[in-house]
């Protein structure tokens, strides 16, 4: 579900949610504060910083690997989890830095000691932090972790499904993450200090294309090529459609097919334009992926939030192209395009 304006959604939704979480890790506080001037209304903006740059809580997993079945609501992927004393769905949202919980169900929980909510400017709700004594899904469990709390009711209302929160990569950074969207599976492998899988029975992931993970954020930036030009995309599993920035190079814009447009009338001067279409010339590695759906919007403000220029977001349509493997220890992002079972 999302991007540009979609993004907005996304943005608004996950992006934002995501973005704000990530900000802590990637953007300096001052830049984050500027986010409120964005023309993209975030789901929530948070200037809250965690005590460390990257929040990667310890977990307990008694096996060398685990398969987490993913549920779907629209183009969202959901993980069934137990958070504190409640069991329900978390949106698997790599745009979210850590754990973001829905205030409808968690507003009465004890506030996390040692951190004070501040500078919250989100248009759809404020963000607070709480301590969660237990998070568990599949065979993974975490104790005494920190989570942000914000209003996620709009996701529930649009998808008709109960959403306890969002979960991002930070919770699984020390594992190798394999996302098989077509099979609705998330596979997590224990890895050693060199990033190799512990178990000998499962061979290493064979990718058709790999990229180095740049930066030190929980948000992944992936390079793609359109019209011969390299673009930086945010890899966001919470994005229900891809997004591409409307102020990209004109030769890039010229390669897009536009299939829908909508003018949204706002309370201010003029309206806002949402364009929807297809990328005809997207290449990653040596693989050309035609016909990926995308929303076209202005992402400038979002780029500011990330502290780096981003040209778009790769979401659901990209995930459907193959099996994706992310290894933060090896700093490697890989994708295998061929169909078939991941081993």
């Amino acid at each position: 579900m999302y991007r540009s304006w979609l993004t907005y959604k996304i943005i608004i939704l996950f992006f934002l949610s995501t973005a704000s979480m990530i900000l802590e890790a990637y953007a300096p506080p001052l830049e984050v504060a500027n986010h409120s001037a964005s023309n993209i209304a975030p789901l929530f903006n948070s200037t809250i910083l965690y005590q460390t740059n990257i929040y990667t809580p310890e977990f307990n997993l008694n096996a060398d690997s685990v398969i987490v079945p993913l549920k779907r609501a629209g183009h969202l992927f959901l993980i069934e989890a137990t958070v504190g004393d409640q069991t329900g769905n978390l949106v698997f949202d790599s745009g979210a830095n850590g754990l973001v919980l829905n205030s409808t169900y968690f507003r009465n929980h004890v506030k996390s000691s040692g951190s004070t909510p501040s500078g919250v400017t989100g248009s759809l709700g404020a963000v607070e932090q709480i301590a969660v004594n237990r998070l568990a899904f599949a065979d993974l469990s975490y104790k005494n972790i920190t989570a942000d709390v914000t209003n996620l009711g709009h996701i529930e209302n649009r998808r008709g499904i109960k959403i306890l929160g969002l979960i991002g990569f930070s919770m699984m950074r020390k594992l190798e993450i394999v996302i098989d969207a077509r099979k609705n599976q998330l596979k997590l492998f224990k890895i050693d200090k060199a990033g190799k899988r512990l178990t000998n029975s499962t061979p290493e992931f064979k990718a058709d294309h790999t990229q180095k993970i740049e930066g030190n954020s929980n948000i992944l930036f992936v390079k793609g090529i359109i019209s011969g030009k390299t673009l930086i995309f945010c890899f966001d599993t919470g994005c229900e459609t891809n997004v591409i920035c409307s102020d990209c190079n004109r030769s890039i814009m010229n390669t897009l097919t536009i299939t829908r447009r909508s003018e949204l009338i706002g309370a201010g001067k003029g309206g806002s334009e949402v364009l929807f279409g297809r990328m005809n010339d997207f290449t990653i590695g040596n693989k050309k992926i035609p016909n990926m759906e995308t929303v076209i919007t202005n992402l400038g403000a979002l780029s500011e939030s990330y502290g780096t220029k981003i040209d778009g977001m790769l979401g659901y349509d990209f995930l459907e192209q193959g099996i994706i493997c992310i290894n933060f220890v090896k700093r490697q992002f890989g994708i295998r395009f061929m169909k078939g079972e991941e081993k």
Binding site: L13, H75, R158, A267, E273
Partner: peptide, 24 residues
């Protein structure tokens, strides 16, 4: 092509448009 969007657009309006397009 519009480069500046109205900040007052409600998120749900956007969601509604895109959801309709995507026909979930």
């Amino acid at each position: 092509i519009q480069s500046n969007a109205d900040q007052n657009i409600k998120a749900n309006d956007l969601f509604t448009v895109v959801d309709k397009w995507m026909n979930f």
